[in-house]
Amino acid sequence: MILRVFNWVMAAVMLAPLVLIVWMSFTPAAFFRLPTTEFSLRWYREAFNYPGFLNSFLLSLRLAGVSAAIATFLAFLAAYGLVRFRFPGKGALEAFFMSPLLVPGVVYGIAMLQFVNSLGLYNTFWALVLAHIAIVVPYALRPIHAQLRAVPEDLEWAARTLGATRTRTLLRVTFPICARGVLSGFLLAFLISFAEVTVVIFMTGPAYQTLPIRIYNYLTDQIDPTVAAISAMLIGLSLVLILILDRIGGLRPAAK
């Protein structure tokens, strides 16, 4: 059947660029030539010897870790407030929390560039964190919100009647029961933050080049297989995170 073959071709096209990267990263030649059967870890060694990449990788990890952690914490509190209370303007507030999804990266990047400069925060780590929190908050909020809604309120009341204050109830009952959703939210936020390119390109200078930015700048200059090795590692990393997310069911509420 034609459809079947067509689907095969399309699936192959989807994967082709990624497969090529991985393939290239394991060949010793400086140029990618087909056919090639040689195998080498040369470019991985190069990648780790190149301090720029390692620094960028660590920066990206730190940035994604810090912003995802803060975003998850704020999102948990906000989700709790939205799920457990009735107050005027709740719907609008929820829409506001999700609204960063609606604003294109370019637009937010331009706004942040000018904003951060006017505050004298240009080229600082915490300016990046602030931007990343805004970007990833909707992704953290969605799974946490969904999970919290599934926790019966009576569980919390049971804890309270047994002598737990609201804070202790939150820590000892609500949070542990929502752990899965919170973890999903955190991983998703981490993933999105780690992958963010556009906003960072607009708002940061040379001192804070995250890994994707480093690759971007490298690509505009030259192509050498070191990038392939790093990209292959990035693909591997997102693969691992996605598998974990899929395991804990985090992709379902997040799927668009």
């Binding site: 990624l18 090529l20 990267i21 992958a195 390119v197 994707p212 690759i215 690509l219 990038v227 990209s231």
Partner: peptide
């Protein structure tokens, strides 16, 4: 997959 990684793959 990261957008710059994809672009790199296509440039290959």
């Amino acid at each position: 997959v990261n957008v710059v990684v994809k672009a790199f793959g296509w440039s290959l």
